[in-house]
Design a protein around this nucleic acid. Sequence first.
DNA 1: TTGTATGCGTTATCAG
DNA 2: CTGATAACGCATACAA
Lengths: 355, 355
Amino acid sequence: MNNKTSAVVRLRKARATTGAAHREGKVTLEMVARAAGVSPSTASRILNGTAVVSELKRHAVDEAIARLGFVPNPVARGLAGGRTLSVGVVTQAIDSPFYGGALRGIEDELSAAGYSPLFVSGQWNAVHETRCIEMLRSRRVDGIIVLTGRTSDAALKALAANLPVVVTGRSLCAPGLVSLNFDNFEGGRLATRHLLGLGHCRIAFITGDTRHPDAKERHRGYLAALKEAGVAADPALVVPGQYTEESGLAAVESLLDKRVPFSAIFAANDQMAFGAALGLHRRQLRVPYDVSLVGFDDVATATYSIPPLTTMHHPVLELGQIAARAMLQLLAGEPATLTLPAPRLVRRESTQARR
Amino acid sequence: MNNKTSAVVRLRKARATTGAAHREGKVTLEMVARAAGVSPSTASRILNGTAVVSELKRHAVDEAIARLGFVPNPVARGLAGGRTLSVGVVTQAIDSPFYGGALRGIEDELSAAGYSPLFVSGQWNAVHETRCIEMLRSRRVDGIIVLTGRTSDAALKALAANLPVVVTGRSLCAPGLVSLNFDNFEGGRLATRHLLGLGHCRIAFITGDTRHPDAKERHRGYLAALKEAGVAADPALVVPGQYTEESGLAAVESLLDKRVPFSAIFAANDQMAFGAALGLHRRQLRVPYDVSLVGFDDVATATYSIPPLTTMHHPVLELGQIAARAMLQLLAGEPATLTLPAPRLVRRESTQARR
DNA sequence: TTGTATGCGTTATCAG
DNA sequence: CTGATAACGCATACAA
C-alpha cells in the first residue's frame, strides 16, 4: 500500500520536472526492475522471453509491470535492439477502393501481432515509390510489404537481401522475399467463360492499364477462353482502358460509335465496368437485357450498383491478411508458404443469357 | 577521389561485419562530423538549425552529408530529442470510401513536411479506439489527428493537455486542441432546399446512424429547410438508416411497403443513397423520372453511379489536408486558425423537377 | 539463472 | 560560436 503511494508520488515528481509534456506517465523498465527487486536486464529478459528466469522473479516483475502500468517504449527498443515492431506498406493510392480492403487486412493481422503498419502511397510513380521505400528504411521498419508497385524486380530482390519483403502482384523468387500472385489469367478466363456459357460470342473486352502485369494477364485469359470455345477473337472488340471509370465510359462510346456489334462486355476491372454501365445507360442500352456486363475485382460497391455487378472476386481483404501473415512468418524466421485463394466468379445481376 | 573510394571501402567493411542485415549502408552523424572535422554536436546543430554556426563549418558538414549520403535516424532522434516526426491518425475504417480521401489528404500534407502518418482504425469501437490512442502515445507520436471517433470530448481534452490534437466532426475548445467541424446542418438544409426548389414537397429522409453527431445535424438541416418552406414535416417520411447501402435499400422498401407517398428522397449519405437507388430500381421506379434522389458526401463513385448522383459535396480530401496543416501549425507552436470549406451541392442527374 | 557494463545514434546541457 | 559529456530507454555481450 505504502509502496504504491510512494511510487505514485515519485511519478508525479517526475512529471512535474519533465519539460516535455508528452512524456507524462512515463514508467521505465528500470523503475519496474527496481520495484520488483531485480536488475533491468532480468526485467528485459522477462519482457521479451529472451532467456529463462526463475518463476519467482518473473512473477514479481509481471506484478510490477501491471501495478506501475508499464508500457515499453518502442522507440528505445528500436534503437537498442534494432527492431521497431513496425512494417512498411507500400501502396499506390491509400484511397483506392481496391486497395482499401487490403490495407485493412494488413492492419488487422499486423496489429494483432503487436506490429504497426506504416502506410505510404507510391502514387503509381516509380521514383516516388523509391523515395517512399528509402523513407521506410530510414525509419527502420522491420520489413516491407509492397502492393504491386512499380519498383523493378531486381530492386526488390536487392531490397530483400537486407530486409524481409512481401510483394503482391508478381511471381518472384529470392531469399527473404515472398511473392503473392493472384491468378489474373485464370480470372480473366473464368469471366469470359461465364459470358460464353451464357451464349454470348461477340464479347467486347476493355483492357486495363497495360503497364500493369495483371491487366495483361486478364487480357490473356480473355483470349484463352475465346480460343477454347472456338470463337474467333475480333480485335475490333478489344478497346483500351486505364482502369478508371472514365476510361470505361469512353471505351463503350467508342465501341458504339464504331458500330461494332456485341452482346456482352468484360471490363478488366470494376471501375471501368461502372463507367461502361453508365455509357450503355446513356445510349438507352439496358444491362443485362441488351448487354451483359462482367467486371473484375468485386469492389465493395459492386454489390449495390445498378444492376448489381457480376464480377470476378479478387480477395483483397484476404490478400492483405495473407501478406501480413507471410511477413510475420518471415520476421519469425519461419519459411513462408502461404498462397492466395483461387479466382471465383460472383454472379449477380448484370449478366444473362443472350437473347 | 581517393577519399571517396576509401570511404566506400570503409562502408563495405562495416556492412560485412555488421550482423543485422538491415543496418546496411548506415552512416552516422558522428561519421559525418569526423569527416567534416567538427564535433557531433555541431553537426547536429547544423542539421537542425538549432544554433548559429560559422559558414565554414556549415559548408564542410553539408558537403560531408552529401558525400557520405547521410540520412538521419528518426528512431535515435526520437529517443534523444523526444520528437519522432510522426503523427498518429485515428480513423474508423481505413477502407471506408469516405475516409479514404481524408487519409490521402493527410498523408500528402504531412509527408511534404517531413512527417509520417501512423494510421490506426478504431472500428467504431470506443474501447478499441482508446487502445489505439494508447498505442500511438507509446510510439511517441508528436501529435494525434482524430477523425470523428467515439472518444469522449473530455478524454480528448485531457489528451490535448499532453499532446497536440486535431479532431474533426466536433466543435471543441481547449488548449492544444483544434477542432474542424463541417457544417452538416447547413448541408442538410441545402440538400433539402434543392429538392424543395424543384417542387418536391413529399421528401423522404433516410437518417444516418444516430450515434454520429453529424447524422443528427443533417437531420436537423432537413427539418429546418422544410420549416422555412412552410412544408409540414411528416414523421412517416423519416426512416432510419445506418449509413450503409443495405440500410438505404431497406429504408426504401419500408417506405414503399407502407405506401407512404413521396416524390423525392434525401439520404444522409451516399452509400444509403446507392442502396435506395437499387431499391427503387427493383420496384421499377426510375431515378429521377419517378423519384428524385439526393445523397450526402460526394464519394468518388457518385460521379459514375446510375444515374450520377446529385449530392452534397463533403470536401474530404481538403478536410484531410486542412487537418494535417492544422497539426503542423500546432506542432510549430503557431496558433491554428484554419477553417473548412462550406457545404456545396453538386447537381448531377438524380434529381429533376417534380412532374 | 542473474547482474554489470556498454552501446544504439541523436539531442541537450553545460562549460569554455 | 563550439566541443565534451550526459541523457534517452532498452537490449545484449560478458562476467559471475
